[in-house]
Amino acid sequence: MSTSVKTARPQTAQKPAPQFSDRVKAERRLGWLLAGPAFVVMLAVTAYPILQAVFDSLFNYRLTAPDEREFIGLGNYATILTDEVWWRDLGVTLLITVVTVVVELILGFALALVMHKALKSVRGLLRTAILVPYGIITVVSAFAWFYAFDINSGFINNWFDWVPGIDPDLNWFAQGGTSLFVIMASEIWKTTPFISLLLLAGLAQVPDELTEAAEVDGATWWERMSRVILPNMKAAIMVAVLFRALDAFRIFDNVFIMTNGAFGTEVLSLLAYRTSISRLEIGLGSAVSVLLFICVLLICFIAIKLFKVDLAGARGGK
């Protein structure tokens, strides 16, 4: 989440600043005063560790061999970028990101429509029901999905043995494809509510007059959707995609619990974790983390510059 906060900041700061009235100036000052302490804390807890990681990444440094620490410049980066493990993990991470975000967007939009159209009397209940998975801690949901599919304790093989390819002897976590399927399904189940909530906010922004006018003009449902509703909620959609893509790219819990990266399911966060925490290779691990951070920055950059995501526009202002 820290990254999303960070991207939001330059947007407000970069706005062109011609002449302001006194009131606007006072408001701005108040804004800084209110946000200032949080800003300082953010710098202390994010900027400092990031700089430390960049510094550490230039050393060959193993926590259990502190005396052998040596400066190797960009050597760690060269090791990582020439290693197939890094590229394989990057591929897996991108695959998970793309598949989950696309599926979540479609499902989330459908759910948002349902919530939007639902009768007032059931709307609250419906929203709660849809939001429940999002309220569950990821580690807990990962365990639930793991035990559901596990060959020893799971019930999925029994319930779905009529589906071709599923039989009682199918070990979901014994090969990459089926493992990734479960990981992604769990991820989608858990975070679709988040997207649907963001999209619901976007739907609410579309003025009723516009859709009503289109309906009077004889537009079909599809035409109203593609010509009126979707263009009007583009900002909300892009923000939802950006937030989810950033989150999905940093996926850790599901993979850690279900396969621990076995059989080609390792993602970049897990590689960073294993290198710095398990292997205690602080230098190499920091380099992996820095590269992961650069990847996240790249995603933000692409989204904001190329797709022109307007983060301020999603705040509800028209």
């Binding site: 060959i151 020893n152 059989f263």
Partner: peptide, 14 residues
């Protein structure tokens, strides 16, 4: 058994 690739001590006991 089909569970071998994910089998730990507890699973093999079962």
């Amino acid at each position: 058994s089909p569970g071998l690739p994910t089998q730990d001590e507890n699973n093999s006991m079962i």
